[in-house]
Amino acid sequence: MSSLAWLEAAGLAAFWSAATIGLYVAAKRLNQRLRRWWSSPLVLAPVLLIALLLALHASYRDYIGGTRWLLMLMGPATVAFAVPIYEQRAMIRRFWPVLAMGVAAGSGTSILTAYGLASLLGLNGDLRLSLLPRSLSTPFAMVVSGDIGGVPDLTAVFVICTGVFGAAFGEALLVWLPLRSSLARGALFGMGAHGAGVAKAHQIGAEEGTIAGLVMVMVGLTNVLAAPLLAMALR
């Protein structure tokens, strides 16, 4: 690569990274005041970025080439979950059988509804397979998607849609369902809406937030371990 091309690539990377971080921070601030589903940093920031991409006639490859390092930070962010898990070890020891039941029921429902509904609406092949792991948090889901023959970057988009829908409708569900235990309220968000759900659960209560975070990690781990079996069943 000539030095000029290298300079251009570095400039593009710096520009798109700055745009992503800037719009994320702006959306986060706005969301703290408005708290609407559309003001979530996961909705507002991508929508504005897509508008910017279209306005500048830039390509997805330019964008993702410059911001891939942000996606890679999901790795250390996964490691960071060790800290809340360790701090909540007493609660885990006490409640893990109940939570494991919830994770098993939720994962089963998730796979069956995704497969059933997709077939019903005539979505087949890659798309249907990419929809299966959408209840997992992103780093896990992308691995599972690849394992079972889906398209990992499509799965990432579906996972994020799941989080946004789940966080938005979870509160309405809490009104309708006769839930007395904070365990059930936390599991609802951790299983249904992962990252975005955990953030929402923390707003409802500290205990709910902890349970949601824990359930999210449990879901990811069990499903990554079960994925090779699922892949065999689908072939």
């Binding site: 429902t109 959408r134 799941t162 979870g170 006769p178």
Partner: peptide, 22 residues
């Protein structure tokens, strides 16, 4: 269609999980 699958699926999953844990 995909949005519909995700929406209906997610609400079902959340309800089933919460009720089982409860």
């Amino acid at each position: 269609k995909i949005a519909a699958v995700i929406l209906v699926g997610t609400v079902t999953v959340m309800a089933v999980t919460a009720l089982v844990v409860e």
